[in-house]
Amino acid sequence: MHTVLFVPAVYLLLILTPFSNSWWTVGSYLVMDPNQTCKRANWSRGKMADICNNKPGLLNQITKGIALGQTECQYQFRYRRWNCTTSRRSIKKVMLRDTRETGFVNAMIAAGITFQVTRACTKGEQIGCSCSKRKKKKNKKNRPPLLEGEWDGCGENIEFGIKKSKDFLDTRYRKRSDMKTLVKLHNYVAGRLAIKKCMVPVCKCHGLSGSCTLRTCTRKMPTFREVGNRLKERFDGAAKVIAGNDGQSFMPEGETIKRPGRGDLVYSEESPLYCVPNNTLGSFGTQGRICNDTSQGEEGCGILCCGRGYSTYTEEIRVNCNCTFKYCCEVQCDTCKVNKRVNICS
């Protein structure tokens, strides 16, 4: 049985499209040590090389952001046939294609870097960035400040996080217009927008005796779990695209399909079934995976086991039981043995 593997932040998930006659020709290396990545950038120029050579603090936050995106991908895909495993044998092959899974991982990585760098900026851990301030809203309808709010607080500088995410991921692709690059860059944008479009106002009241004669409002990022949930919804509704007539854009595969927006995920290749092991596709198969025989969703035995059926066994687990409240402020429980039913894909 193959399970989701977790790696420490020291490993860098770097998604590289093969290019001819360039240092990234070696393919889509993933789960890569950032030091190894930067060794390849030492002799090159550009914003990525500048980050590698001159900004170790920023590189550290980027590394953490990629690990954050990868971990969230594993959570969102925990019930899918391909579960975003970090195994090189799997993810490297998956990322060489241009499927919905590839688009989701690219979006999660771009979002993870944006989120982590922005948060580090807010905490004062990044040089060259400051909090984001917005001007006071105009009171066009003569409403009192309580209804309009005062946008003069120190908010999270999402634009700084987006810029650094672009510097590291996007800049080396800017002069290319092949289909894989266009799709990759589009999904990077979708990942960042999943944060930017979901920022929420947080307001504090100021005044005597708790009155709200003045409000100070700032904009905060959503939790990264909310970002992951939003991108998973985009994954479920991702649009298949084909190359445009101009050779520099893409369009929906079907004439009746709505053109995807900037926040939507796109792909150009159908996904494999991932039902059986296939080294070429990066599939470990689903044999031995735990499934839910009462669910009709992704985790259901019918879908996860690909129609092969499943076996059931019972295991004994220990749980808290007979809990009672003891005065004051203590809960005491017994430990009971119960049988748990487990379904395993055949």
Rank of each mutant, 00 (worst) to 15 (best):
N54F: 01
S20P: 03
L30W: 10
G65A: 00
M32L: 12
T25C: 06
Q70S: 14
K55Y: 04
S44G: 06
G27T: 00
N21V: 07
L59A: 05
C38W: 02
C52A: 03
T71G: 08
W23P: 13
V26T: 11
N53M: 11
T37L: 13
C52L: 01
Q61D: 06
K47G: 01
W23E: 12
N42K: 15
A41N: 07
S20Q: 11
D50Y: 09
K39L: 10
A67E: 14
W24N: 15
F19D: 14
W23C: 11
W23K: 13
C38S: 05
V31S: 08
I51W: 01
N53G: 09
L58T: 06
F19R: 15
D33V: 10
G57K: 10
S20W: 05
G57H: 06
N21Y: 05
A49R: 07
Q36I: 13
T25N: 12
A67C: 12
S44P: 01
W24D: 15
T25K: 11
S28D: 05
M48F: 11
T37S: 09
G27D: 00
M32Y: 06
S22K: 08
F19C: 14
G69I: 01
R40I: 11
S44W: 03
S22L: 03
S28K: 08
S22Y: 03
P56Q: 07
V31G: 06
G57M: 04
N54K: 11
P34A: 08
S28I: 05
I51L: 03
K55G: 01
P56H: 03
N35I: 13
S44D: 09
K64P: 01
G46W: 00
N35P: 00
K47H: 03
G69D: 01
Q36T: 15
R40D: 11
K39G: 12
D33E: 13
D33N: 14
D33C: 09
P56N: 04
K47Q: 06
K39Q: 14
S20M: 08
T71C: 04
L68F: 03
S22E: 10
C52V: 05
F19E: 15
L30M: 14
A41E: 14
F19H: 14
S28Q: 08
K39Y: 07
K47T: 09
N60I: 03
L30R: 11
K55L: 06
L30G: 11
P56S: 07
D50W: 05
Q70E: 13
F19M: 14
N53V: 07
T71I: 09
M32G: 07
T71P: 00
C38I: 05
Q70M: 12
N42T: 15
L68C: 04
A67N: 15
G65V: 00
I62C: 04
G46H: 01
T71A: 12
L58C: 01
Q61H: 09
Q70Y: 07
W24V: 14
G46D: 02
I51Q: 05
W24M: 15
L58P: 02
L59Y: 01
Q61F: 02
Q36F: 10
C52R: 04
S20Y: 09
S28R: 11
I66P: 03
R45D: 05
D33I: 06
S44C: 06
C52K: 04
Q70A: 12
N21D: 12
